[in-house]
Design a protein around this nucleic acid. Structure first.
Length: 351
DNA sequence: TCTGGGGTCCTAGGACCC
DNA sequence: TCTGGGGTCCTAGGACCC
């Protein structure tokens, strides 16, 4: 199977609309104003040379790359471009496409020559959308996904059981898809620093540390194992959420209530668009000095906006008084169809 | 005046039931 | 000789991904 990843997707789409920016450092984030509380969504390769990366506060990014052009996020433009890319992938002969996000997808296909197929696919995407992509080839989803990193930019790279350990064995566990800073640090605490060491780890030890599902899963990850099948069944969202970081902290209860009403309306818009009821709510509150709390509540299934709002306000009552609030988020959960997904392996990298 | 916004899944502990 | 054993549901929190 193949993993396709567009190169600096968001920045590339912006350069298509603003050709004069080609070759310049471009940063996309927030409303494009580096004095606001916001972070970098994507930086062009030229901007990355200055040490700018996604997730970085916009203010810091602007300081590191003073010459950079900073643009606001335009989700609709990226969505349109993304749909065109995915349509192109689906049009490839024999392709089964599993979309992972705006700029990524797995493509399942039977072919004698995956490299040639990958090159044709890159060419098709370029002709149709003027966007460049990298393709990873693998015998599992995990290997294909990791392979892409070695092909950047505009390349093709193959990673299978034959060369997995040769390529990945001595690398740190954080290079794996699904291992972040926290888990890699905990693994290091167990004396497991590299991918090879993880692959050879004692299952009982990892289970004791990470639980009955995640423990064995990390060992599989170290071996590059996991799902072999690209699944193109349409995605059904479990919920929808909205959150807002306020430019000025909220300090008055009336401000908080107003903000929550607004969030509720936005979330319900998404839910209503799907015609599904609400069965659960989560209110996220970030108090000014980086301390986040969540309040969760199951509710009786309802389509009624007023009922949902009333339940949300019950959660609001749990907010600690007299603390400035920097961020509020609201998530509404929807019921899932009976049949779906039981007993699968942990999934972000493996379903 | 460091840290967006939208998602997913797992784990632990308590309540409650038989 | 003090306290089984299995299960479900709910809430809170953690971690990861794009």
């Amino acid at each position: 199977m193949l993993h396709v990843d567009l190169d600096q997707f968001v920045a590339a789409v912006e350069v298509l609309r603003h050709p004069e920016l080609a070759g310049k450092p471009v940063i996309v984030g927030g409303r494009g104003d580096p004095t606001e509380r916001a972070v970098v969504s994507t930086a062009s390769y030229e901007a990355r040379e200055f040490g700018v990366g996604s997730g970085m506060p916009l203010r810091i990014a602007a300081r590191k790359a003073p010459e950079a052009v900073i643009l606001p996020v335009d989700g609709e433009a990226y969505m349109t471009a993304s749909e065109e890319v995915m349509t192109t992938l689906r049009a490839q002969p024999g392709a089964i496409v599993q979309v992972l996000g705006w700029d990524e997808a797995f493509v399942g296909v039977q072919t004698e020559d995956p490299e040639a197929y990958a090159r044709r696919l890159q060419q098709a995407v370029l002709e149709r959308t003027r966007l460049h992509c990298t393709v990873g080839i693998g015998d599992t989803l995990v290997r294909a996904k990791v392979a892409t990193g070695f092909g950047k930019p505009r390349g093709v790279f193959r990673l299978t059981a034959d060369n997995w350990f040769e390529v990945m064995g001595d690398r740190p566990t954080i290079d794996l898809w699904g291992v972040g800073t926290k888990i890699s640090r905990r693994l290091a605490g167990l004396g497991i620093a590299t991918v090879s060491e993880l692959a050879a780890a004692e299952p009982t030890r990892l289970m004791a540390e990470f639980g009955p599902r995640m423990g064995p899963w990390y060992i599989l990850l170290g071996r590059g194992e996991g799902a072999h099948v690209v699944d193109d069944t349409p995605w059904v969202a479990r919920g929808h959420s909205r959150e807002t970081t306020y430019q000025q902290d909220l300090t008055e209860p009336a401000q908080v209530e107003e903000a929550v009403r607004e969030l509720t309306a936005r979330v319900l818009e998404d839910i209503a668009a799907e015609g599904r009821p609400v069965i659960g709510l989560t209110l996220k509150v970030r108090y000014a000095p980086f301390m986040t709390k969540v309040f969760t509540k199951k509710i009786a299934e309802t389509f009624d906006r007023e009922v949902v709002l009333a339940r949300v306000l019950e959660l609001v009552a749990r907010i600690e008084p007299d603390r400035p609030i920097r961020l509020l988020g609201l998530r509404a959960e929807m019921p899932m169809p009976e049949d779906s997904r039981e007993g699968h392996t942990p999934t972000r990298s493996g379903w």
